[in-house]
Nucleic acid binder design. Sequence first.
DNA 1: AATATTAAAGATAATTTTATCCTTAATTTT
DNA 2: AAAATTAAGGATAAAATTATCTTTAATATT
Lengths: 148, 148
Amino acid sequence: MFSKSTEYALRATIFIARNSSADTKVSIQSIAEGIGAPKPFIAKILQQLSNKQNQVISSTPGPSGGFFITKEKRSKPIYIVIEAMGDSTIIENCVLGLPNCSDAAPCSMHKVYKNIRKDLLSMFKDRTIDEIAKSKDRLIPTDFSCKE
Amino acid sequence: MFSKSTEYALRATIFIARNSSADTKVSIQSIAEGIGAPKPFIAKILQQLSNKQNQVISSTPGPSGGFFITKEKRSKPIYIVIEAMGDSTIIENCVLGLPNCSDAAPCSMHKVYKNIRKDLLSMFKDRTIDEIAKSKDRLIPTDFSCKE
DNA sequence: AATATTAAAGATAATTTTATCCTTAATTTT
DNA sequence: AAAATTAAGGATAAAATTATCTTTAATATT
Ligand code: SF4
Ligand code: SF4
């Protein structure tokens, strides 16, 4: 559904929400291992999630530094991750790729897609980061036992 | 949601279903114009939709040749277009990009995504090409008046 | 059979996405 | 203050996607 970048971004954000607090930060290394992503690539994504415009996650350099997520951001919808990655069009745009999508100017799949899109959007806009992080289900390809 | 190729493929297939019959075929030129796609690119996509493995649409070369769709294929689900373009993973795979997705090995968004994915899949697998083609809603970016 | 028309096929180019690497800056610990 | 640790930033590379072009093959019309 999403780009690889956004998949990693979602997994990384959930991982950070689970494994960090005010005084326990997580390193790029442990995030990369925790979600099964290439370290240099996830580093770039973390950068994007924590830059001036986005600030979905926070970071501090230096020893015992790393990434964490503030209480304020924890209660935001996971949608902010998708937005920060620039992938929100995937769930917002027309299935047929037409611009100016609306009930007034419907594409040929409008009627059948409309409600599914609404559900998709509300899934990402109504669920908070903390809510998703709570589940403890897996975030990494090979890990099949994180739930038990 | 889908790749540009698949968006064009869906629009082209619906366009052909609307504008062709056993004796009226449509040319690449008129398809490109009818859906607002670059002609050389849509030519490649039509090729892929009509090749030996896929055969979603059919074609004949020569004067008064062009593309058409058989009665048999008209009654197939639009899912076959997505499959032919190799984009079915987009609606089948895990939102978080994890392999071996199942209730037994759920990812951290499984619970909230499961039913939406089911709806997405049934939308593409239960609706036939003819059913979608019937709507007469727009297939082209600039055309805002095809419904009236 | 010759000609005109149309798609098929394959080569190529541009762009975007994905991934990696190396240097710099910030922070903490000693 | 010096050393160690960690992320930030920027440059580069590889791969996939999107787009274009040219030649060839097939078919119908004359
Ligand atoms: S399907 Fe309808 S609602 Fe969905 S995008 Fe196309 S026009 Fe818009
Ligand atoms: S969300 Fe659940 S069902 Fe959907 S993909 Fe991830 S594991 Fe599979």
